[in-house]
Design a binder for these strands. Structure first.
Lengths: 208, 208
DNA sequence: GTCATCATGTAAGCCGTTACATGATTGC
DNA sequence: GCAATCATGTAACGGCTTACATGATGAC
């Protein structure tokens, strides 16, 4: 999970750990901040595995390239390089290697863990890196799973053993699942180029 | 989390582990089955702590008594005792002790972990055991938390850096949070004896 | 007599957390 | 010069999962 998210973020551009943490929170859906105690070890591990490599700092100045985003990088570099001799406890910027890119594809393609909805959401958030057929399969698998869960929830709600509070919880859960299914249907419709219906458009237009 | 759920279930009546697992799934909202590897150790631990005690077995057959409680225990014992000499690997039925009941109240009252929505849902499902003021506080705290989360999500969605898929994920998440808030508002209204509005009633009437 | 289901448990390990420790940069 | 914030890391631990091992019961 974390690995996949990190790799995905690093696919866009080189970044350092602290920045990744912020992006994890508000670029991808991961509501809560990942803790450092899990982020840094993950980065270290990925580096050991050869999926990432530390690039002393991004953009060794010298604007020889047409680089995008290098400007800020350059400034950062010069700042660090110029820095106090004590240096080295500054940002550590990582770059995705080819091995890492391959790992990313592999992780992204593998089925999300049944539980932990974040595993699924993350894959959708990164869906642009997936071939269209894989996208549809991802969405449809999830849809089937939710359909099953909805049945269970409705069966439970039909039972008579529940008191008001417990029943309300179950009914609200069922409502949430229905809403998820509707969302997936919207995404699937967009995926197939079939606008769901004129007038009532899906909340988001997904196509590039 | 698990402890609280177990204690809650055992508060109603004596049960054995396997049964608890089933109830965890479809009586309380806990969608997915708890694994044995986590359930049985939890039961053992609670027993060691004196929160539970094993009562050889409750009542198989022999409808001699109107018994609630101890009588059935005796009968159960007899079945197990009578059993194949190899016995003893049969069901192990637990009863909630007073210590356990106290522990239950304590756990139920303490604030749910911010993450893991199940922690909150579980408390709502068991809300009948909570004094009304605690119920309202539980719901309002959650409401405030969700309100904050919604702001964050909307801010993220407003950002321009997201591609279609990521944006859709964030927007759907925001929708879910709004739906949760509406649900809480319904529960709070019911809690205060103020029916939300005529015509559009809440999905569930919570009052006894 | 054998298969499915009910029932209890142990062992290893994953994935994350909190708490702690440290250093660098910026603004006042 | 000091505080806030940015930044990286380690240590200990927690809760849950999977996989494994075992036994009892009932149906056919």
């Amino acid at each position: 999970m974390l690995d996949l998210a990190i790799l995905g973020l690093l696919g866009e551009k080189d970044r350092h750990g602290y920045e990744i943490r912020r992006l994890l929170r508000d670029e991808l859906g991961l509501a809560t901040n990942v803790s450092f105690g899990s982020l840094y070890p993950a980065l270290a591990r990925l580096e050991r595995q050869g999926a990432l490599e530390a690039v002393a700092d991004p953009a060794p100045a010298v604007p020889t390239g047409p680089s995008t985003g290098s400007l800020s990088g350059e400034r950062a570099t010069s700042r660090v390089r110029r820095g106090r001799t004590r240096g080295l406890r500054s940002r550590k910027v990582y770059r995705l290697t080819e091995t890492g890119a391959a790992l990313f594809s592999r992780l992204l393609a593998e089925p999300p863990s049944q539980d932990d909805p974040r595993s699924f959401s993350l894959r959708v958030a990164l869906a642009r890196h997936l071939p269209p057929s894989a996208r549809v399969e991802l969405l449809e698998r999830r849809r089937a799973l939710l359909e099953g869960r909805l049945d269970e929830l409705e069966a439970t709600a039909a039972g008579t053993t529940l008191d008001g509070y417990a029943r309300s919880v179950v009914e609200h859960a069922a409502h949430g699942v229905r809403s998820d299914i509707d969302w997936l249907d919207g995404l699937l419709a967009a995926e197939r180029g079939t606008p769901p219906s004129r007038g009532a458009s899906v909340t988001t237009q997904v196509a590039p």
